[in-house]
Design a protein around this nucleic acid. Structure first.
Lengths: 138, 138
DNA sequence: TCTATATTCTACCCGGAGGTAGACATTGCG
DNA sequence: CGCAATGTCTACCTCCGGGTAGAATATAGA
C-alpha cells in the first residue's frame, strides 16, 4: 500500500505552504526545503493549480499559494487529482465486476480494511494535517 | 491500494487448485481457466514452488499441486513471496523514519487503516478463502 | 528598456512490472 | 526409440511513473 510519489509530494507541499509564514512559495523553495526534484515539482504544482488547490503568480517574486480554506481541501480530493481514486475502490483481486452477488474469495475479508482507508481519506482535511501533532515534512 | 498483478494471479491460482478436483494442474489449464498469460504464469508458479506453496511434477501429465495444508498458507505469506511486504508497513508519505517521536502529518490518521490491512493479511488463510462465500476466480 | 527570477510548455531518458518468444529439460506412453 | 506434453530457463519487448533538460513566457524592479 503506497501512494504515488506525486501524491506524497503534493501533500507535503500543501502542508508546507499552509504552515509557512510566507504568502507566496516559489517552486524552487518548495523543492529545496522538501527535497523534491525541482522540474518534476514544477509540473505537479501546475496540476494542483489546474485543480484549484493553489493559485500562482508568475514573474519575479512569484510563486504558489493555497487558494481555498484548509478545511475544504480533503485528502481524498488531493489524491484524486494526482493519481485518481479508482485503485482505492476496486476489488483487491482486480475483478471488474466483484460484488455481493458475485464476490471474489477475498471480497468479504477486504471490505472492512478498504472502508477504513476510504473513510480516512474522505474525512481528513488539510486543516487536520496542519493541526496534527506530526509536522515531519522531509 | 492494489496488489501487484502477480499477487492477484498467485492468489487466484492457489484458490483454484485448492478447489479443483484434479490432483495436478498444468500451467496451461490454470492460464486458460483463469485467463492469465501462459508464459508469465509459468515463471510465477516457479516462484511459488521455490517458496514451498506448491510442488511440481515435470513431464507428460505433470503440473502443480498445493504442497501444504490450506490453513498454513496465509495471505500475508503469499504477498510477501510475490511482491514483498515492505510497502504495507511503511509511512504513507514515504518517510524512512516516521514514528511516534517524529511523525509525519498523516501518521496518526494512517495508523488505524494500516493496522486493519495488516491484520487482515495476517489472519486470512487459503482455507478461509476457499470456505468464503465468494469463489469468483475470473 | 533590460535583467533576474518566476511559471509554463515540450521533448526526452530511465527503471521496474507486466508480458511474449523460443530453446531446453524431463517424462509418460505408444 | 520417438513423439507429445509438460516444467524450466533466458532474452527481449512494452507501458508508465518518475525524473531531467531546455526553451518560452511573464513580471518586478533597477
Amino acid at each position: 500500500m503506497r501512494l504515488f510519489k506525486s501524491s506524497e509530494y503534493a501533500i507535503r507541499c500543501l502542508v508546507f505552504m499552509a504552515i509557512s509564514e510566507c504568502d507566496l512559495c516559489p517552486v524552487q523553495q518548495l523543492a529545496t526545503e522538501l527535497n523534491i526534484p525541482f522540474k518534476f515539482l514544477g509540473r505537479l504544482m501546475g496540476r494542483l493549480r489546474a485543480a484549484g488547490f493553489v493559485e500562482s503568480v508568475r514573474g519575479k517574486h512569484g510563486g504558489y499559494r493555497i487558494a481555498k480554506p484548509l478545511e475544504k481541501i480533503r485528502l481524498e480530493a488531493i489524491i484524486d487529482t494526482v493519481e485518481g481514486l479508482d485503485t482505492y475502490d476496486r476489488c483487491i483481486l482486480g475483478f471488474d465486476r466483484c460484488d455481493e452477488e458475485n464476490p471474489c474469495p477475498l471480497h468479504d475479508f477486504w471490505k472492512s480494511p478498504k472502508a477504513g482507508i476510504q473513510e480516512m481519506m474522505a474525512q481528513v482535511t488539510l486543516a487536520d494535517m496542519v493541526q496534527a501533532k506530526g509536522k515531519k515534512l522531509s
